[in-house]
Nucleic acid binder design. Sequence first.
DNA 1: GCTTAGCGTGCAAACGTTTGCACCTAGCTA
DNA 2: TAGCTAGGTGCAAACGTTTGCACGCTAAGC
Lengths: 344, 344
Amino acid sequence: MAKKRASITDLAKQLNISVSTVSRALSGHSAISEATVKRVTALAKEVGYQPNSLASGLRKGRSNMLGVVVPHIDGNFFSQVVKGIEAAASKAGYHVLICQSNEDVAHERENLETLMNAQVEGILVSLSRTTHEFKHFEKVRKRDIPLVFFDRILDGYDVNAVVLDDRAGGYRATKHLLDQGYRRIAHFTGPQYLNIYKLRRQGYEDALREYGLPIEEELIISGSMDMAAGSAGIKQLLALPQPPDAVFSGSDFSAAGALQVLHERGLRVPEDMGLVGFSNELFSRLMVPMLTSIDQHCELMGRSATRLLLQIMQEQSQHAAPQHIVLQPDLFVRASSLRSAANP
Amino acid sequence: MAKKRASITDLAKQLNISVSTVSRALSGHSAISEATVKRVTALAKEVGYQPNSLASGLRKGRSNMLGVVVPHIDGNFFSQVVKGIEAAASKAGYHVLICQSNEDVAHERENLETLMNAQVEGILVSLSRTTHEFKHFEKVRKRDIPLVFFDRILDGYDVNAVVLDDRAGGYRATKHLLDQGYRRIAHFTGPQYLNIYKLRRQGYEDALREYGLPIEEELIISGSMDMAAGSAGIKQLLALPQPPDAVFSGSDFSAAGALQVLHERGLRVPEDMGLVGFSNELFSRLMVPMLTSIDQHCELMGRSATRLLLQIMQEQSQHAAPQHIVLQPDLFVRASSLRSAANP
DNA sequence: GCTTAGCGTGCAAACGTTTGCACCTAGCTA
DNA sequence: TAGCTAGGTGCAAACGTTTGCACGCTAAGC
């Protein structure tokens, strides 16, 4: 396939010196005379020498590679996290090997095998939606390969992780609506075994309690968090004898679905119905009215997770107590929830 | 770092056979007695043996890795393409090493070095916006590392590439507007040294010509193709003595920017102004009205590019005539351009 | 009974690096 | 002058595989 590339041995032959000298000259490590270093680097540049990282990795027992397992790489959230991971990793001289689990725990297991096989030095994981147990990660642990989770984690396992404070996100979104004068606030939530949805809901309930408001089950709609679920959810809410005056949706997509129905029925946002989403998707700025939403700092999460992983790798401290990094979400207030501005 | 993992040599010692026998037993290659194969695989499973792909890669002169250079991994288009690439590559037993050029040609050059250094067997590239010359790719070529470009390519270089028929996309978008009865159609375009924008514009002009309509420079707005550019563009158009009755935007983002201004001014879409975007971004379905747009089959592009690359690698035919694969875009007709449905 | 074939296995080299150790040559001290 | 230090270099082993070749053994053909 690829043409035979110049190796360190070739350089050595051409210069009539030994491979070890060449190696040391190039890595600048040992005491090699300046003259030799110059000769070597000059020739290296001339023939376009490039070190074979496979060989070096084999010898040094390192691969300079990190593995990443995500449910999928498309979509706003994960693609931005991966961007952050790649940026932080390449800054530290690491390559990134990316695998998709496609939300399937069996794939996830294979991905881990694949990555260990490729000799990655550390692994970053966001769990698939179908992962309920931890068994396949034990193998990684047994090999002492540092492991850091991000965003989606399993309850009850003490692991290194970088997560968003979803409870705070839910709380702030709901509190903002309350501050705007909304008093009957509904909530769209997702599967409760996922930490993210459970916590967002907790935040919602905490805020209501703080305002002395009751938590009404009929106002909490559980669904798949996509657009269709939002449309269906808002219809259900509007059919209530006492419909809500605002919705905090655990996802921007559901919020968008709800907005479409509201438009169809001639209801005004934010006057008749306040609306807050979650994730600060790109399109939240494109909706009419623009959607208030919670930003998750996706890229920062990727960078933080990578830095944590690199730190663990360096300290060889993976047996120390696992670290939890909790990022604080930001509320981006836009027109969809600004009743006070709409009716000053 | 990671605990010393069982190697083929360990297996050999435990079974009192030679490493070569173990190797062959595991790869099932040569004629090894069934009994031995069973013994070996059994022990391998027991100790959780995992082949060291670095060593194997070094010996075989293969790495089982493909390199990808993209301007960035976030955003709808590239994240989907990368999804397709990863899927196709992993199906063929390859890992994917991803680099971001951040739209910077210097980074792009470094990325290529990095990938060659990592011994990738082939490289997929979508050019950065600041890449005007081809010099840094010559080095890759000299090493006989198969190279496939996708989406963004440079004019005048004969290379393997998978691209979208952007001209057809522009043509179909414009023709659709014409069919809907719009007659004074404006166009948002981007930097003309990028094939994609140039071709979309060509398609636009071709359609107008076909309908015997003049191409008016004042209706063609060149910009950075983001939301702000769209807002600015539509304002400029509305200020004309004879404003257009429709806009074909080379990007959904600019279309969204334009839509916001139209809303503000109380102009109705599609009645007063038809609107068609390009890229079929996620949010095009979330806008009000939903935006007609051109779909680029991003994931298919990733898969096609990867398959082409793998084929070239297999055939060792990189010296054969470069192949061009042209994907046909699809028009997704939605409310923003349906004048006939709005006024039946 | 001797050759031949073929099956199963082992030896050893190779892939391109890195690195502990030993060696050599100067220049210095005692 | 012998002994020592230190700077510069080379030797060779090692990382974990793969693979061409050769070896030994058994069974079949003459």
